[in-house]
Nucleic acid binder design. Structure first.
Lengths: 252, 252
DNA sequence: ATCAATCGTCCGATATTTCGGACTGTTGTC
DNA sequence: GACAACAGTCCGAAATATCGGACGATTGAT
């Protein structure tokens, strides 16, 4: 996505549309026109005009409480995307099956800019589970997927790719770069990544790479710390993950 | 969606964005810039500028063949819509289960303007099946859902709501209004709609209403003509549909 | 190698859109 | 009931984006 501090004044109207939609997405909740004004920095009359234009096209809808959110058209467009993205389409049943087999959450993540993004999330039926919303973006070093990505990269490339701020965990803890590099190397040799209690103290994720063209994607299994703890079980999980990833990797 | 013959000259830039996305959705396939120029009627440089702006924001993506299609951002927005739409969210598991139980296609349709639109489509596992893409729009009189909708409406209201052209079936056959009204009345008394070989000679659909606020929605089961033919089986299907619809209907 | 056709980018005059603010209708307070 | 605050619409001067066309890059044919 585009920086919110877009200084360019080119195509302001369209920038407004884009930033309005991004704000809606970020809030993940319907917003009032007032909130949209504040969030986008657009003047009142412009926001209203935008809302009207986009509502007419079905891009936005106004709820019974007067709040604005995405409309049907976005549903259609989003499904068009998911249908046409080869990897996503093929991955859905695979990830669903993976999730069902172990009754844990299976995810497909893709790199989007300098953040990992959850593109598919299939939950197990377990009453308490680790789960994310599709579209959630997470700094590379926080994720198991990211550790797989960085495997084999030089220190310089890694430091260039990852924004400094992303080495600080949500807990406030600073990731030690040297220890991190060592862990990445370990991950690379092992062939899969494992994180425990990193983003959240209860989350445990395993990730393996998917190779498909230039797309940088990872398949992960997520569960709560403590589950699937013994080594044999973990081997089984990793093996299943690898198999899934192999199915999805393009043979070219 | 908005008429393609929008004569208003207000906010042309945004109109262009809207029409570009609508064209992509209509074609259901990635398009070249050239095709987009032709489809939207926008000048060459404008199309390129649009593509660049929207690509930068992740709204569009360029495939390896140079064709343009929706990008990741649309996926996020679409899922936001589906997550926030109460009915859709609750309906997904219900329709999935309905589909699984009979191994037929279950759909949730909503009225969008004067057309019925498929909002959820869960396929049975059967190798040959009746199915639609989410987002497909169908004239009211062609659908079982539409017959449920019109139940109880006066002749005048119905003729005002349904565009004249929609009384002509894909086969070219003209629907006789009087027979149609009689059938609607029959449908209303029976409590569910049944269409056989209407839109397509092999499609058979059953629909029941879902009551939830002002949203006009229907649950349907679709299968090929000839299947589920005997009366007892149909009763079972209808009963299950009614149950699903009751689950989804809001108790207010 | 040359040429033609196509693809994509860039630029600036001009036709268009934006946005401050006035206006109307609605809601809530005293 | 009077008033204030708010929500949404509308307008036109001023600020801006649009699009014709020129340009360079790339491809393909001869």
């Amino acid at each position: 996505m585009r920086q919110s501090t877009t200084s360019t004044s080119r195509a302001r109207g369209i920038d407004r549309v884009i930033s309005l939609c991004e704000q809606l997405h970020l809030h993940r909740e319907p917003m009032t026109p007032k909130e949209l004004m504040a969030a986008t920095g657009a003047p009142r009359s412009s926001v209203y005009e935008l809302i009207n234009l986009l509502s007419e096209a079905g891009w936005l809808e106004t709820g019974s409480d007067g709040r604005i959110f995405f409309g049907r058209a976005m549903h259609y467009f989003g499904l068009d995307y998911a249908d046409h993205n080869d990897l996503l389409r093929r991955a859905r049943p695979v990830m669903r099956q993976l999730s069902a087999r172990f009754d844990e959450t299976a995810q497909l993540c893709m790199l989007d800019g300098d953040k990992y993004t959850v593109m598919l999330n299939e939950n197990g039926a377990r009453p308490f589970r680790i789960s994310s919303e599709v579209g959630v973006k997470v700094p590379i070093p926080w994720t198991a997927s990211g550790r797989v990505l960085l495997g084999g990269m030089s220190r310089e490339v890694i430091l260039g790719l990852v924004p400094e701020a992303d080495f600080v965990l949500p807990s406030g803890e600073q990731i030690d770069i040297d220890a991190f590099l060592a862990e990445i190397e370990h991950t690379r040799q092992r062939g899969y990544a494992l994180t425990e209690g990193l983003v959240d103290s209860f989350a445990c994720c395993m990730a393996v790479p998917i190779h498909e063209g230039d797309t940088i994607a990872r398949a992960t299994l997520c569960f709560t710390v403590g589950r699937n703890a013994d080594q044999a079980r973990r081997e089984t999980l990793v093996e299943a993950l690898r198999e899934a990833a192999a199915t999805l990797s393009h043979g070219d």
